[in-house]
């Protein structure tokens, strides 16, 4: 399957809560080109996760439309895969069984012997790519936080997504692991070619990974700046020293400052 263009038009989301209505998103408009890597940054609570859930069909907008390849999103769609902030591995399944879960849920049972072995092969290849060779038969509790998140990325990639959505996937990791995961993710992106929507708090992370960074305002969130990142791929350590990298980071900081999100004492 080919990645398709995503069109988000006038999307709004208001939650009805006990304390009254909470508007999380107001008039979000954007187009995302197929195969691009797009990051969304914004202050906490501005509606980033809400936007991703809408895009993934896990929630419905209260206004506007979201279309993927010209079709209106309603419910989770084939070809979409989501990586959440928490790795959400099933503790009772081994690493391999966790990765193969999407297949199992869609009709590949233990009866399909042939598929089973080829699928297992697929899962093991993925594990090798994220540096977890030989961990297939371990249970999640035997892995570190970073390893667990790698497994959850494998679980998303094995679906061969055309659209991969990640909601602060590295948020719970330490700085060093986080950086390593960024390099790994870029490598996977090169191999797996799909549209990536990546949500993060970290400006550096967003600039380093993406073709485009969308900056959101405080709640109710909307896209206030759309920044193209003109750094060539493959990107590596030296990219982070590049003047253009630093300029982009500075520009986004500037947006936050002018919004009053980042204030100096």
């Amino acid at each position: 399957m080919r990645s398709k263009e995503i069109v988000i038009r006038d999307v709004e989301k208001t939650f009805q809560t006990r304390g009254g209505a909470v508007q999380a998103l107001s008039k979000v408009n954007l187009n995302i080109e197929p195969l691009s890597f797009v990051s969304v940054v914004g202050p906490s609570g501005c509606g980033k996760s809400t936007l991703m859930n809408l895009l993934a069909g896990l929630d419905t907008p209260t206004g506007g439309v979201i279309e993927i390849g010209g079709e209106r999103v309603s419910g989770a769609q084939e070809g979409n895969a989501v990586v959440f902030q928490r790795d959400l591995l099933l503790e009772w399944r081994t690493v391999i069984a966790n990765i193969l879960l999407p297949f199992e849920l869609h009709g590949v049972t233990w009866l399909d012997r042939k598929d089973r072995t080829t699928n297992r092969q697929l899962a093991e290849d993925l594990l090798r790519m994220v540096g977890l060779e030989g961990f297939g038969d371990k249970y999640p509790f035997e892995l570190s936080g970073g390893m667990r998140q790698r497994v959850s990325i494998c679980r998303a990639l094995i679906q061969r997504p055309t659209l991969l959505m990640m909601d602060e996937p590295f948020g719970a990791l330490d700085a060093l692991t986080r950086e390593q995961m960024m390099y790994d993710l870029l490598r996977l992106y090169d191999q797996y070619k799909c549209t990536v929507v990546f949500i993060t708090h970290s400006i550096e992370e967003a600039v380093f990974l993406s073709d485009r960074v969308l900056v959101m305002s405080e709640r109710p969130g909307s896209v206030v700046r759309d920044i193209k990142i003109q750094l060539e791929r493959p990107r590596n350590l030296s990219t982070r020293m590049d003047a253009r990298f630093l300029d982009c980071v500075k520009e986004i900081r500037g947006v936050f400052q002018s919004q009053g999100v980042l204030a100096e004492v």
Partner: peptide
């Protein structure tokens, strides 16, 4: 709730 979101995203 998050587990439920995962299940939904996997179209279970």
């Amino acid at each position: 709730k998050e587990m439920n979101m995962l299940a939904m995203s996997l179209r279970a």
